[in-house]
Design a binder for these strands. Structure first.
Length: 549
DNA sequence: TCTGGCACTTT
DNA sequence: CAAAGTGCCAG
């Protein structure tokens, strides 16, 4: 509430999407400019196009502070909110058109991390991605006027490490790096979610990337959380004298807060230990690269880069691919919310398509998810769906790449493979064999039913769904700080679908997906909720793999 | 590493 | 007042 400074913000990064469509497929470029706005205001036309929607990250400065220190987000079995909260200011929407806003959190790369020597270091390959779930903003679907009227907050979104989470929270693996992505799906009558032409655009703010943890590793992050999160006020020392701490200890005199002390101790200790162990020390130099830099496009990146570098070693590759899809499916209508679950699944599945362009970008999301209920209820919903893959790549490579990206703007995800650059495509993407249906099923699940019935859903109601739906590709994240992509709708989809490649592949799990899906579907009938099961599977994705090494 | 309970705070 | 979000800490 208070915060907002939005106005000011604006300039920063706005991500805009560009094109849509079909045409685009490719061109990443077009998008490039995006992040910053300056560039292109392309068209003027009516802006109704989804590609003209601009989104500004709220409290970007705070996010940057965290990012520079190496953002960590706690994940718990019960689900933990993110802090800073993901809030955005949107503009450029058609006031009368209905849109669905949702967030998904995709692997930023395919590494597992460890915090050593007071730094984040790669500690192996990432575990298979979990089923991707989507968090649909509780107000969805709503008109452009509604979304633009005030800040759009995703503060109720929760992250969990419980792969069988029944509440619809976004499931993540601990000690892995992730990138939240915002997707805006046009949900008009003419373009209901389920329709083939569903158009959507995706926005990625790199400063919102984080490493999931079960307990904070970097005390700088702990302090930033305590200092800025109202709920952690109890741990704030009163500046000069930390009254609070003293109070806790039953002392009357001020003392430094416990956590501070503890952290200091730990950190110094770790440092030493680390050095000894490593022998090395490197300063930051180690890494560096990390994030990609984008071309100049985003500026933000720049910043990020550094920060990342320090804290997050790798990043993904630039190669990025983007995809655009379209999806169709979905079940829900907007209006209803889901009422129907129907799914057309089949259809649904099919719909997704996406393309990737080479250079380009992928698109994200997708589709499907929905929860009607949620909508209705207005709660948030989570869906699973996709999976994403890890993409990323190789951290290393990146460095160079920095340049990359221009494309960026578009959404990103996608794949990243580590190697991407190089042959990336090949690998990463494999077509999915699975078929769409699976998705469909998923979709179904999503539907309403789920309801709650089964699950307990504490919080919200949401439905969760997994769907594999989304298939998206992996995430890759582009470099720029913010990037946006649009999908146009596509047509033809079917084919596309197949492509989906995604991630799956390789690794071990390729198959699963399919199975899983089926499972999902079945489930759907039932109580959905459990999505949990589904989830896992579904995703397959795994992606990872890359060879990386 | 991860978990559950705790004290504290905001809502 | 109750519910819920936080980091801390012992296990």
């Amino acid at each position: 509430m208070l915060q907002e400074k939005a106005s000011a913000v604006t300039d920063d990064r706005v991500s805009r999407v560009q094109a849509n469509a079909e045409t685009d497929l490719f061109p990443d470029q077009s998008q490039l400019g995006a992040p910053t706005a300056p560039t292109a205001p392309t068209s003027a036309g009516p802006d109704q196009n989804i590609e003209n929607i601009k989104v500004v990250l709220h409290e970007r400065e705070l996010w940057k502070r965290f990012h520079e220190a190496g953002t960590e987000m706690i994940i718990t079995k019960a689900g933990r909110r993110m802090f800073p909260s993901y809030k955005v200011k949107a503009s450029g929407m058609n006031p009368k058109t209905k849109y669905i806003l949702l967030i998904d959190v995709v692997p930023a790369d395919d590494h597992r991390y460890k915090f050593c020597d007071n730094k984040w270091m790669v500690a192996g390959k990432a575990e298979p991605a979990m089923p991707g779930r989507l968090y649909v903003h509780p107000d969805s679907p709503a008109t452009g006027a509604h979304w633009m009227r005030q800040l759009v907050s995703f503060q109720k979104l929760k992250l969990t490490n419980n792969h069988l989470d029944p509440f619809g929270h976004i499931i993540l693996n601990s000690m892995h790096k992730y990138q939240p992505r915002l997707h805006i799906v046009k949900a008009d009558e003419n373009n209901a979610f389920g329709s083939k032409n569903t158009a959507y655009c995706s926005h990625v703010f790199h400063e919102t990337a984080f490493i999931s943890v079960t307990s904070y590793q970097n005390h700088k992050i702990t302090q930033l959380k305590i200092e800025n999160n109202p709920f952690a006020k109890g741990f704030r020392g009163s500046e000069e004298g930390d009254l609070r701490a003293s109070r806790l200890e039953g002392k009357d005199y001020p003392v430094i807060s416990k956590n501070m002390v503890r952290q200091r101790i730990i950190s110094s200790h770790s440092h030493l230990a680390g050095k000894l162990r490593a022998g090395v020390l490197t300063s930051h130099a180690q890494v560096l690269s990390s994030y990609p830099y984008d071309t100049g496009v985003s500026l933000s990146n720049l910043e990020s880069q550094d920060s990342l570098s320090n804290h997050f070693p790798q990043s993904r590759d630039p190669s990025l691919v983007y995809h655009c899809f379209k999806h169709r499916d979905n079940s829900r209508h907007l209006e209803l919310g889901c009422k129907q679950p129907y799914l057309e699944s089949s259809s649904v599945m099919s719909e997704e398509h996406f393309f990737r362009s080479a250079p380009s970008y992928e698109s994200p999301l997708l589709s499907r998810p929905y929860c009607g209920e949620a909508i209705t209820a207005r709660e948030a919903c989570m869906y699973s769906g996709m999976e994403t893959q890890p993409g990323a790549g190789p951290g290393v490579a990146e460095k160079d790449e920095r340049t990359i990206s221009p494309s960026v703007n578009c959404s990103m995800w996608a794949t990243m493979q580590p190697y991407s650059r190089y042959g990336v495509e090949a690998v990463p993407y494999q077509p999915f064999t699975s078929h769409p249906f699976s998705n469909a099923a998923a979709v179904h699940s999503v539907l309403p039913q789920p309801a709650s019935a089964m699950l307990p859903r504490p919080q919200t109601d949401l439905g969760v769904y997994n769907s594999a739906v989304v298939q998206r590709a992996l995430p890759v994240i582009p470099q720029s700080s913010s990037s946006s992509s649009c999908s146009p709708v596509l047509t033809g989809s079917s084919d596309v679908i197949s492509h989906q490649p995604l991630y799956h592949k390789k690794s071990g799990s390729p198959l699963q997906p399919l199975k899983e899906y089926s499972a999902c579907s079945s489930q759907r009938m039932m109580p959905i909720r459990d999505s949990s099961h589904q989830y896992q599977v579904g995703l397959s994705n795994a992606g990872s793999h890359w060879t990386d090494s």
